[in-house]
């Protein structure tokens, strides 16, 4: 017996420990589930942590109304399979109720508007711990975020006032109205996620794997021709064409781009990820590109 433990086992054990701490110390947790790969891994880990009990908390999807149908289908199938309640906080409904106003500029996304619906759902259901699939390797502001990330009664994140986090001793104490965002995947990288997807044989929405799709270029982004994004007339560079692509992230369909790839299995994606020269967000998220501090600003307001 060598008592060796692989990096995936170490990461899994850490995440399971985190989920068990939350289930033991909080009263009303929920898990943010979009149907994307990080939330799929998170859900799988949460189910493992609670095993053999069923998941003792609901899933929450903040729905921008701009979805890939494959992802919604996966979301519903996964929730049904685990027999767990799925709550949907709809950004469209918030717009219809006049609570938030959509930016009329062409190409504007609903990313920022999600914060309102997320915080409203947290308040309405009195959630005190909300699991998210955020990873520290995604982005520079996230690199400093705690695993147990405190939010005040307005849902705000104060990056300079964070509680120190030592060993694996998490402090989730809070007053009523305050809550925590919990990030069990903090120490995972994109590559770890794919290695884990492969090892655990996890199912993911089909658009993560290479498929033929009609797309067009906007700047350096490769966007799908579809109900949410379409080439603008009289913009010569936005000629549609058909090619083989996959998605590295699946967010709001208006600002999530595809990458050209023929990788059709997790193993092929791992091989590609290992040599990729563009970060996940840089390649596929139009929303983070306009400013160095875009993510920090959104997070301060209460974003994921």
């Amino acid at each position: 017996m060598t008592y060796k433990i692989s990096h995936l086992d170490a990461l899994e054990s850490e995440a399971v420990h985190v989920v068990r701490e939350v289930v033991s110390e909080f009263e009303r947790p929920a898990l943010l589930f979009s149907g994307g790969k990080d939330s799929a891994v998170l859900l799988h880990l949460a189910a493992k942590a609670c095993w053999p009990q069923p998941l003792p908390f609901p899933l929450l999807h903040v729905d921008t109304g701009h979805n890939f149908p494959e992802v919604l289908a996966f979301r519903d199938a996964r929730a049904a399979e685990l027999g767990v309640r799925l709550l949907v906080a709809s950004v469209q409904e918030a717009i219809d109720r006049g609570e938030v106003v959509e930016d009329p500029a062409p190409g504007a996304t609903r990313n920022r508007l999600q914060t309102h619906s997320l915080l409203q759902a947290i308040e309405q259901h009195r959630f005190d711990a909300v699991f998210g699939g955020g990873r520290r390797d995604e982005e520079k502001a996230r690199a400093k975020e705690r695993v147990f990330s405190f939010r005040d009664e307005f849902g705000q994140w104060d990056p300079r006032g964070q509680r120190p986090e030592l060993w694996s001793l998490y402090n989730g104490r809070h007053r009523p109205g305050e809550h925590f965002r919990i990030f069990p995947l903090s120490n995972w990288t994109e590559l770890d996620v794919w290695q884990y997807v492969e090892r655990e044989s996890l199912t993911l929405p089909s658009i993560y794997f290479a498929h033929r799709r009609e797309v067009f270029r906007r700047g350096s982004m490769l966007l799908a021709v579809g109900p949410h994004t379409a080439p603008r007339e009289r913009v010569p560079d936005e000629e549609p064409f058909v090619t083989t692509v996959r998605y590295r992230t699946v967010g709001d369909a208006t600002c999530t781009a595809a990458v050209e790839s023929v990788a059709a299995t997790p193993a092929e994606i791992i091989a590609e990820t290992a040599v990729s020269r563009i970060s996940e967000r840089g390649a596929t998220r139009a929303d983070d590109r306009f400013s160095e501090a875009a993510m920090e600003d959104r997070k301060r307001e209460g974003y994921f």
């Binding site: 990096h7 520290r136 390797d137 520079k140 502001a141 996230r142 690199a143 400093k144 990056p159 300079r160 964070q162 903090s186 120490n187 990288t189 590559l191 770890d192 160095e292 501090a293 920090e296």
Partner: peptide, 30 residues
Amino acid sequence: LTDGLRAEREQGITIDVAYRYFSTPRRKFI
């Protein structure tokens, strides 16, 4: 590459612990 928060970039100093990830074929490093 490692200064994450706006205040840090503006002041040119690192304020808080940041976590970085890299790996080689032999080990993953945090």
